[in-house]
Design a protein around this nucleic acid. Structure first.
Lengths: 317, 317
DNA sequence: TTGAAAGCGGTACCAG
DNA sequence: CTGGTACCGCTTTCAA
């Protein structure tokens, strides 16, 4: 492996000049630059980022703690998200370092100064990792809304739920049930709130009885809005157990647009999460901040995409 | 941030002694060790892996190129796999660095000496990345079988397919169709070969007509073995289009055990891939190699787990 | 515009 | 068992 000294020797200049050729080419005389560049080419020289990091203190790397995965309900979007993250960071010369999610592991990565910043996801309220990062002064951005700072990006679930409600209203639904779960998760709470707000605004009646009972009542809801796709399928089951047919008798919507939406019968109307865009904005905000830019005032909301499928058919009459 | 010099000064020893306390504690007098340890604690000193790497040349990091993800058919197992990978590597003091999969990116990571080795997946035959790694002498292990070396781990699809065939035979099936696709992918070819071998050994007749036609024939196959779960669902559709009912009229099996197997109706019999075990063996082999151990002669095959569900019911008569 | 010297934070080697 | 010295490969500072 060629070092900077090898190149300097080959080009008949000092090591500094080689360094300048790489980092501040404009300060070199044209012919010197040409000579150095030729030597770099000839020797196949690549500066060692480790040595550079030691000197400059910047690591050109970002950590992403990989959330644990429930094998029975894997996050099918994770692979795509990471691919996009790597891609977006890569085009700006940064790498993604995976870490465990526990506080100790994160503390270690910070203490070892292995990265310049963090990308977080699945952030809970009062997440201990945030305290850790704040205390150490390590910049981060989160996928999912945070309390104060503008260092976050999230799906605009309120807007998405409003679209869902508008769809149902347009299809003639007047009484709708909401199927939620895990409401300790901020994003699940957020979706419910978005639904309720839109339902209120558009004059939809929200079912208050437990859904299994409500579906058997004479004035049963004609649609169920679920907090995610898995819950949507739970809705299918409830509907079936009430002797009704999902889609035909009761419309259903999900959230996340997992691939199973197209597979189940009827295909499930859902909201697609723009993974690529989210990765881009996350990386953009973090790297801008690392570059010394100001922290944006507000978090960024990106629109989900409502995909209407057979589970929300146009109603006859 | 405390440095090794700070600790040395605080403990009244040289930097070298602090270094020894960390890396070769047995060479220190007990009381010196105690003094140094106390100083480390007091100052919260953590050695900087970047500086250490510069000196030793080892990065304590492993690269994993993230395969691109088809949004319409995401790899639902990726999140869990990466989590396991991080976990297994982490317990041995190694980190996972994500990279892009293209040859140029990999060449860059190698040239920049950013990792000690690679974990690969989705390796094609004559994969250009292998040439790159071999040429540079960078150690690697692959999820998925490789030509010569023992640096790989894979699911024993032949054994798994044998289990599938045995199940079908036991259930009274005599004529079975195979539904494959993307046979340029080694693992897909491997599954088909495993099926054919087992069918041959157990005297099963393999359907040779195109499945849509065969299902309409009088001597139609009574079961379909699919190369993966998505193909299993394609099988469901073919069966339905032939006026038959999957599970009841024609048994179906998949492969991978995606979560959708439990969701579809009938639930799809499939083979679960032991992701955690695979990650463990991959990391184990790579790190053993990095530690100077010998390369194993053979690749490792790990058993898949056949999960029998409603799509392969016990046959009446 | 170019170069010499110092140093980033550790570890290897060797002397005592 | 401990410490002095050189050095890993690069960039920053300051003179020439």
């Amino acid at each position: 492996m060629a070092t900077i000294s090898d190149v300097a020797r080959a080009a008949g200049v000092s090591r500094q000049t080689v360094s300048n050729a790489l980092n501040a080419a404009h300060r070199l005389a044209p012919d010197t630059l040409a000579r150095v560049t030729a030597a770099i080419e000839a020797l196949g020289y690549r500066p060692d980022p480790t040595a550079r990091s030691l000197r400059t203190g910047s690591r050109h790397a970002v950590a992403y703690p990989v959330p644990p995965d429930n094998p029975d309900r894997p996050n099918a979007l994770m692979g795509g998200f990471l691919h996009c993250l790597v891609d977006e960071a890569g085009t700006r010369g940064f790498r993604i370092l995976l870490t465990r999610t526990d506080r100790a592991s994160i503390a270690e990565v910070i203490a070892a100064r292995q990265v310049d910043g963090f990308v977080l996801s699945d952030v809970l309220s009062a997440d201990p990792r945030l305290a850790e990062l704040d205390a150490a002064g390590v910049p981060y951005v989160a996928f999912g809304r945070l309390g104060g700072s503008g260092g976050w990006v999230d799906v605009d679930s309120a807007a998405a739920m409003a679209e869902v409600v508008e769809l149902l209203v347009a299809q003639g639904h007047r009484r709708v049930g909401y199927l939620g779960a895990a409401e300790d998760l901020p994003w699940m709470r957020d979706r419910r709130a978005g639904f309720l707000a839109a339902a209120d605004r558009l004059g939809l009646t929200v079912e208050s009885r437990p859904l299994p009972d409500a579906l058997r009542a004479a004035d049963r809801p004609t649609a169920i809005v679920a907090g995610d796709d898995w819950l949507g399928l739970a809705g299918y089951r409830m509907i079936g157990e009430a002797g009704l047919v999902p889609g035909r008798d009761v419309a259903v919507t999900g959230f996340n647009d997992l691939p199973l939406c197209d597979l189940v019968s009827p295909a499930l109307t859902s909201v697609r999460i723009p993974v690529r865009l989210i990765a881009r904005v996350l990386v953009g905000r973090l790297l801008d901040r690392l570059a010394g830019g100001p922290t944006p005032e507000h978090g960024a909301l990106v629109a989900g995409e409502l995909l209407v499928r057979a589970s929300t058919p146009v109603r006859q009459g």
